[in-house]
Design a protein around this nucleic acid. Sequence first.
DNA 1: TAGAATAATGAACGGTGTTCATTTATGGAG
DNA 2: CTCCATAAATGAACACCGTTCATTATTCTA
Lengths: 200, 200
Amino acid sequence: MARRKDHTPEQLKTLIRSAAEKLIYKKGLQGLTARALAQEIGYTPGTIYNTYQDMDALITDINYETLGRLYQFCQERVYDLPMDFSKVRALAYAYVDFAHKNQRAWESVFATAHKGDKTPRLPKDYQQRILSLFEHIEITLKECLNFPSDRARITARLMWACLHGITVLTLDGRLKLVGVEEPHEMIDDLLTKYLHHDVR
Amino acid sequence: MARRKDHTPEQLKTLIRSAAEKLIYKKGLQGLTARALAQEIGYTPGTIYNTYQDMDALITDINYETLGRLYQFCQERVYDLPMDFSKVRALAYAYVDFAHKNQRAWESVFATAHKGDKTPRLPKDYQQRILSLFEHIEITLKECLNFPSDRARITARLMWACLHGITVLTLDGRLKLVGVEEPHEMIDDLLTKYLHHDVR
DNA sequence: TAGAATAATGAACGGTGTTCATTTATGGAG
DNA sequence: CTCCATAAATGAACACCGTTCATTATTCTA
């Protein structure tokens, strides 16, 4: 068949993306193959390549979507909280909670693909979305803990790195062996000591 | 041909492993394929499967080796340092420095393989080697900063998580965009605030 | 020296991403 | 209403991937 026009190009793109997200949710990145995806949406593999240049572009698109959801998730968790330390903590909790609730999608974002040597420069929108996450922490530090701008910048990045490490280690089933405590406890420990150093 | 016996089984295992490490060093995990590896050592793919059950077992073995090198690297960096904060800091530096010097190998260790759902329980030796790393930090905290045992345990894990996060974010070329400062600076910032909170 | 044991092979299977000539349904023009 | 240009979907094909295993060639043993 050809030109079925069951879907407009945009509908098709959405269809592909949501089917791909479903596959990642169920089986992880490994489960996302062109053929499985095609089967899922009732098309053949070739069709996917009319919409996305390659599977990598699709994955990047999904990761972009995931970053957006992460951002929104963090926003909703903290927007109505008082402007004090509890808001900073809630923001940190939100990050690891999102990762745990969306494990496979989150792993996909940070999977070290590194196909060959080419560092695949990410699209500008994608970069901007990452920056937004940093800015959110940065602003929160300024507003809630009265951090000066430069200090907030540095701290935001360090905080993110630590959160990221905590998340990786608590998510990765292989490392369960280290007896990691609940991530929230680790965050409490980190924040009360690291941040209060400045605050007091 | 058959039974060439150019190499004893052990020689062959070493040959395979070092050739595989070379491939990972040059091209990353993506570059390590059974066929490329066979070519590298002058055998055919089938031969590899006489030595290793599958490619995963080979990778696990290499990662085990890498963990050993990491441990030794950290030891050598700190063993002759005075028993104070500078030793703790040197240990943290050692971790990120090793990761940067052995980028591809380090990535291989922490690559979220997750083939399917099966969490591939790691060999006992492998687990022990990870534990050794934690213990090294733990002991250092006790000896250099007079941490009580339980506090050292918790702090060692948190410290490792943060180091890990810092390493990931500074290594991943895709995330260069966040303007991460030198990892040493981040570590200084983290340690002086987080650890000194207890020390003072 | 004959035969058993074993190391290495390489063809084959089912999987992957990707390309592209071909086919086919459709929207518009005559 | 018919025809055709256009666009959409196909599916066969290519070059890879990990893995298996009957076969082959070599060495060791008796």
